[in-house]
């Protein structure tokens, strides 16, 4: 029966739900420079998308548009409920951690809600700390709590792990995944770390010269990606302009032959 139905509808909709983010033919200029050039982007609710791109590819501009910092005049659907985690955390240094978490949030139970959010990110022991006394990882946890407390439909992650040391980064990756599984926001992770993108995302986009130059779904579920990672890495690096045949990092550079 279902086979018959499939045949009778030759083009079933690829993604069932309405996308939560939709940019169509979206362009942005700064003077003569076209930073985003006729860009198409759709993100489904609850989808985890990674966006790879070299410096100057338009990542920052795209993110500013989605974060609502630059006006998206025409051709853009962005949910009102969104929150951003920035690379440099950007906590207000003159507010204690918990006050940063509930920045702009009204209500009697602000302190309690802040503490709950801090517990979720594993920072429940430092609600009253000053931000400048936090380590890089702690600051990013606070920054995640500040984003999550708004229950966003769209969570924008702007290279949030780039400044962390390797071990802290791995812990933060695990934290982000578990938070995503629990709250199921749509996530757009902007990064230039191919490994990070392959580990976290459902789908990887490559931005180049203001356009989506390539799109690579990650075929295997998380935890079973060992088999797909090597060819995927080679393809992604190829899209980024680095031709390799192996796809193994240790063999990418300076082969002895």
């Amino acid at each position: 029966m279902s086979e018959v139905l499939r045949i009778s509808f030759p083009e079933p909709p690829v993604r069932e739900p309405e996308p939560i983010v939709r940019l169509q033919g979206f362009s942005r200029h700064f003077g003569e420079t076209r930073v985003l050039d006729d860009l198409d982007l759709a993100i489904a609710p609850g989808e985890f998308v990674a966006l790879l791109g070299r410096s100057g590819s338009g990542k920052t501009t795209l993110l500013r548009t989605l974060a609502g910092l630059d006006e998206a005049n025409g051709g853009a659907v962005i949910p009102a409920s969104r929150a951003t985690v920035f690379q440099d955390a950007r906590l207000l240094p003159w507010k204690r951690v918990w006050q940063n978490v509930v920045l702009g949030v009204a209500g009697e139970d602000r302190r309690q809600r802040a503490e709950e959010a801090l517990r979720e990110v594993g920072l429940e022991h430092r609600p009253d700390a000053w931000p400048l006394t936090l380590s890089g990882g702690e600051a990013q946890r606070a920054s995640l709590a500040r984003a999550l407390i708004r229950k966003p439909e769209l969570l924008l992650l702007d290279e949030p792990f780039a400044a962390l040391d390797a071990l802290t980064r791995i812990r933060m990756h695990a934290l982000v995944l578990s938070l995503w599984r629990r709250h199921k926001p749509a996530v757009l992770l902007v990064t230039h770390d191919v490994e990070e993108a392959m580990a976290l995302a459902d789908r990887i986009l490559v931005l180049d010269a203001g356009r989506i130059a390539a799109e690579e779904p990650v075929a295997a579920p998380r935890g079973q990606r060992a088999s797909v990672v090597r060819p995927l890495r080679a393809r992604l690096l190829g899209h980024l302009g680095l031709q390799t045949d192996g796809g193994v990092y240790a063999d990418l550079i300076g082969r002895d032959t």
């Binding site: 609502g68 207000l92 920045l103 708004r150």
Partner: peptide, 27 residues
């Protein structure tokens, strides 16, 4: 500016930006 941007991305009004970001920053 980066702090202002961050606060703005969380939907703070102009008055809230002045109170929570600009004035403490200028203190």
């Amino acid at each position: 500016r980066r702090l202002l941007d961050a606060a703005r991305s969380f939907g703070l009004s102009r008055l809230q930006l002045v109170w929570h970001v600009v004035l403490p920053g200028a203190l």
